[in-house]
Nucleic acid binder design. Sequence first.
DNA 1: ATGGTAGGTGCCCTA
Length: 260
Amino acid sequence: MKIVSWNVNSLNARLPFVLDWVAKHEPDVLCLQETKLKDDDFPYQAFKDIGYNSVHFGQGRWNGVAIVSKAKGEDVVCGGVAEYFEGQLEARHLAATVEGIRVHSVYVPNGRSLEDAHFDYKLRWLGDLRSLLEKECKLFDQILVAGDFNIAPDDQDVWDPAAYVGCTHVSDDERSALKSIEDLGFVDVARHLNPNDVQFSWWDYRGGAFHKGEGLRIDLALVSNSLISRVVSARIDRDARKVSKAGKPSDHAPLELCLR
DNA sequence: ATGGTAGGTGCCCTA
């Protein structure tokens, strides 16, 4: 079984690219972030045509999360996490049960800067995610939380830690909030399976960052302790960050998990 | 040399 998480940075702009990738890699489950679509605009039929069911939670313009899967997603829950910033809806969380696995697709707020109100929102959002997962742990055994966390868990997940001093994505507060979620009984599976690897998942579009290796590992898959024994591999598909004949890439690459 | 790119929406915002 293959489960993938991918921030596509607009599914509208990326659809041919994503469909091409899905046809080649045939994931069983695909968690998407930053679809930037309203629910009515989600390309349900395009995925149906290649054998996939979709559930989506979006508002249009920004954010938007989906779970696309060969088997139908059930017990769908949208939100359940702090979904409002100053009264404005932000669609950043969606859960569904697929083949007995409770799957959460998450798009954690960026935070902008440590002084910005969006940074407080980011921490509040992570606290609410923790509360939600604490409840989910009582209801489900095999849980996967995959998405763009906008947090580099450790300095080895940053191309140049010195360049990020005082920045979001690496602060103690964010890393502690992530650790607090892991303490519920979750494992950062890519780091767990590849303890010494440097596998970034995001590179800024600007300044040729991808080609210079200037990336971060901020796309994560957390799995519950009962699911970790099923995961045999975790890798980032760097090739999907390159321009291809299917089109231009997202600034994030997909994280691929293989389960037995 | 203190920049740049990409994608939304609509002549700026977000990442």
